[in-house]
Design a binder for these strands. Structure first.
Lengths: 342, 342
DNA sequence: CATTAGCACTCATTAGCTAAGAGTGCTAAC
DNA sequence: GTTAGCACTCTTAGCTAATGAGTGCTAATG
């Protein structure tokens, strides 16, 4: 459908625009070494490319800029995954600093990713999926206050303080915690609620009198629904992009970033592999001039988490795709080794 | 030094400018009900106020805007602390949601504070000062990995994962943790290092053979220096302020916000009470067009933490000062009750 | 003598105009 | 199929004039 030459010209225009953020004219294209045609020829192809919807003009006599469809074509056909720089070793470097808890590794990786790319990085942590319960603990601080602590096999620790009403005896609570520890060891977090409500609750009565109220209390402390945790890096990088010179755009960008639930939704329903959502392809008006590009990392064929970058549609796709691909592989490897050792 | 009338005019100008963000002219002042003089009279006083440095012009024939000195005078003489709205009950409302861990209360309060004011709120947490060690725990995840958990009497939980080298025996580690728990219970966190290095280290040898290496390891995990923790609310509120229509200013604002160490320094060396730093009074170029206003909350005459708001120099001082004063009192009360119960 | 009316003056803002320049689309020639 | 040539479009920058908000100063006023 597209001629060889049109393809070439499309590629050159998009590459150029990504670099300069300025509309690209026929003359400047014809000057490139790879182009051996006159500006007039280029103009003809540009007009065709515009007719097909791959390019746009900012005004009737301006140079061309890529349309969303143009970027889409560019990503699908002109950027090859083979260019992947494997072995980027972000995670490896992070881990050499002696960190090893997943939460910290992820946070750190997000920061490095945003530094390398100058976009905003978002990582959806892995704990939601495969992590298992290692231990529950209750530490009483005073007769009326206590802390509930939950530890997973990945080294993740959740805690929540709560106050104990007078009518509840802390020793009852401790008994219950012991039972829970016995019964829930090794249970994946996602099955915790289920297991709790079916098996465990029935056992409880025989050990603790009048356990109902205490149990309800503990349940709220330990098993409050776990909101998805997002890790960000480079939240202010967007301020560097020329297309965000307008405060209004910055505002709308941040309104999206702050809405973590919404963001998590956008990240979650992804197929595996690299996923690129350009402009309006994101079902979110606030980032209709942004590209959200994401990759999943996984272990054992189960999706585990997502790494993403959010930047202007004029994104350095080539670099970013290679980078994300490399990083997701690396994280999958880390998860694999991890699991082998634990 | 200032006549009655000049005082009144200064106040009206600043009030007006705070509200509208527009230079104030003599005509609009003369229209106010409280002003019973002609524009010409007002103009004369405005010229005097400008000579004295309280007002400025944006250009030779513009209305006046307050100078930093003007704001300073306004804050020192024209805003009275008596207007305090006591009983603002931010914290009380937060706590009614069932939260009670200090960290969460503080975080939540910061958010509410920024919502009420539309500025960015910054709270310097209290844990650095009076909190005591409640319990240390070590949970082994695998033969080579473990989590160190530290719990304070305020319900604060710190944790840190670490990997255990082969040459170290986890049972040794556990022994050491037990000893530490015995000896360090109730010790204020700030004295932890000291106590550790003097008393405790000497005891260790008699219980555990070859403890040195293991101990060093644990020490790093449990007692890594605790960076000051800042809680933010409304980080993007600044985008609403008309004086931050310029991206450059937004950038410099965020460069300050991101530099938490620097911010913490600015907040720390404060006398008690309410502290207002206007524009260049902040020793930081990045916020030379901002006001940082802070209040300390305390228990038992010791400074405990700081609540602050960061916004443009054109700040609603009246409202903000009353609010911060109320909130700091409230937090002090909470701390007091807290301590009584624990 | 403090206050005020009057008036000339300043400066930002806006609109309208022009010239330059970048880039296009089309046609005719190669 | 490709390209040179050219008329045309639109942005940008610079200039001018008109408008209007606001000032500073002077002289008149109660």
């Amino acid at each position: 459908m597209l001629t060889e030459r049109q393809l070439l010209i499309l590629q050159v225009i998009i590459d150029d625009f990504i670099e300069t953020a300025q509309p690209v004219g026929s003359r400047s294209i014809a000057k490139k070494e790879t182009i051996r045609y006159s500006p007039a020829t280029v103009r003809n192809d540009m007009a065709d490319l515009e007719d097909m919807g791959f390019l746009e003009k900012t005004h009737s006599s301006s140079g061309r800029i890529p349309s969303e469809k143009g970027y889409r074509y560019y990503v699908d056909h002109l950027v090859s995954l083979k260019e992947t720089m494997n072995n980027i070793k972000i995670v490896e470097n992070v881990m050499q600093e002696g960190l090893f808890e997943f939460e910290q590794i992820v946070q750190h990786s997000a920061e490095i990713l945003s530094e390398i790319t100058n976009y905003t990085s978002i990582i959806l942590g892995p704990e939601v999926f495969e992590t298992q319960l290692k231990q529950l603990q209750m530490v009483t601080l005073s007769p009326y206050t206590a802390v509930a602590i939950l530890i997973t096999n990945t080294g993740h620790v959740e805690h929540r303080s709560f106050s104990v009403p007078e009518e509840i005896d802390t020793s009852d609570l401790e008994k219950i915690v012991n039972i829970l520890n016995d019964r829930l060891y090794g249970v994946p977090l996602i099955h915790l609620h289920e297991k709790l409500n079916t098996e465990v609750i029935n056992l409880m009565g025989s050990y603790v009198n009048d356990f109902e109220k205490s149990f309800q209390y503990l349940k709220a402390a330990f098993f409050s629904d776990n909101p998805v945790k997002l890790y960000f890096g480079g939240k202010t990088n967007i301020l560097m992009q020329p297309e965000f010179n307008d405060i209004e755009k910055v505002r709308s960008f941040y309104s999206m970033i702050e809405n973590e639930d919404r963001l998590a939704d956008l990240l979650k329903n992804n197929a595996g592999g690299i996923n690129v959502r350009i402009g309006h392809e994101n079902q979110a008006d606030a980032i209709k001039e942004c590209t959200l590009i994401s990759a999943t990392y996984e272990w054992d064929e189960e999706q585990m988490g997502t790494i993403a970058l959010l930047g202007p549609t004029r994104m350095e796709y080539r670099k970013v795709i290679a980078l994300l691909n490399g990083l997701s592989n690396e994280m999958s490897n880390v998860l694999y080794k991890w699991h082998k050792n634990s």
